[in-house]
Amino acid sequence: MILKAIIDEQVYTLNVPDPVIARGGDFFAQLDRDMDQGWQMSREWVEAPNRLQRCQIIADKLLTALEKENEKLGMLMAGYILTRLPGVESVELDVQGEVQNNRFRFQGAGGLGATDSASGDSGRGPERDLAGNQTGDQAGDQTGDQAELPSGLDKMQALAQAGQDVTQVFKVGKAYRFSVFDHASGRWQDSPLIATEAEAERLRQERFKARYEALQRS
C-alpha cells in the first residue's frame, strides 16, 4: 500500500509492505488505546479524538519520523493511516506542527474539496499571535480585555478560570508555545514560538499568574 507524504513541495512516497500492515495490528491498537485517553492537539485538548483526528495525530508522528529519517517508525505511522482511512492517497503535513492542519487527499475525490473536507477545520476564525500585540495577554488583562474578563472571583474560582484560559505548553515543530484566551475577541492568542520547553513553561506561568490575579480584581 502506498501513501504519499507532502512536506512543503517535497513528496515522499511511502510504500508500506503488506506484512507491515498485517503485523502492525497490535501496535496500531495500542496507539488507539493511548488516544482513547484524550490528546493535546496543538492548543486544544480533545477528550475523544475521532478517526480523522487520530490520523492527524499520527500524521504529526509521521512528520517527526521523516525528519529523523526513522524509516521503520515512518512505515508504521503510514500503515496506521492507511488502515484507518480507506482510500487515502496522500497526507499534506504541516511543518509548523499544527496537528489540525494535517490534511488528507483521497483517491477519486476532487483536489481542493477533498483536502478541505478532511482538514478537521473547526470553523474558528483566524487567531492572532501574541507577538503581534503590544504585550500579549497581559495587555489584554489590563486594558480592553479587562472589561470582558469575569471579575471579583475568589481564589478557587480564579484558579479554575485561569486554568481554562491558559493552555498547557505544546510542541509546534521543534519549538514550543502556549495559548491564552482573549475574552474581548472570543479567540485564542498564540504565544511566539519558544526554543525550549523550560522557557515556554516559565513564560506560561507568568501569563497564568497575570490572568489569575486579573480575575480576582473587583
Rank of each mutant, 00 (worst) to 15 (best):
P150A: 04
T143Q: 10
S151T: 08
N133H: 11
D137S: 10
Q138E: 10
S122L: 13
R128P: 05
E127S: 15
Q142K: 15
G125I: 00
Q138I: 10
D154F: 01
Q157I: 01
D145K: 11
N133W: 13
P150M: 02
D129A: 10
K155Q: 09
Q134Y: 11
Q138H: 13
A147L: 10
L130Q: 14
Q138A: 06
G144K: 06
D145V: 02
A147V: 02
D141G: 12
D145P: 08
G144V: 11
L149D: 08
P150W: 04
A139S: 12
R128C: 02
L130E: 12
L130Y: 09
G140Y: 11
D141R: 15
G125N: 08
A139D: 11
D141F: 13
L149N: 15
A131C: 03
M156A: 14
L149A: 05
S122H: 08
G132R: 12
P126V: 03
G132E: 07
Q157F: 00
K155G: 02
L149E: 04
Q157R: 07
G132Q: 09
Q146R: 14
A147T: 03
L153D: 07
P126R: 14
D137Q: 12
Q157E: 14
G136E: 06
G132V: 01
G123I: 01
Q138W: 13
A147S: 13
A139R: 13
T135F: 10
D137Y: 08
M156W: 04
G140N: 07
G140T: 01
R124T: 03
S122R: 15
Q142L: 05
L149T: 00
Q134M: 08
R124M: 08
L130H: 07
G144S: 12
E127P: 06
D129V: 00
Q142Y: 06
T135G: 14
A131V: 00
D137M: 14
G136C: 11
N133G: 04
G140F: 04
G136D: 03
S122E: 07
A139E: 10
R124V: 05
S122Y: 05
P150C: 06
P126Q: 08
Q134E: 07
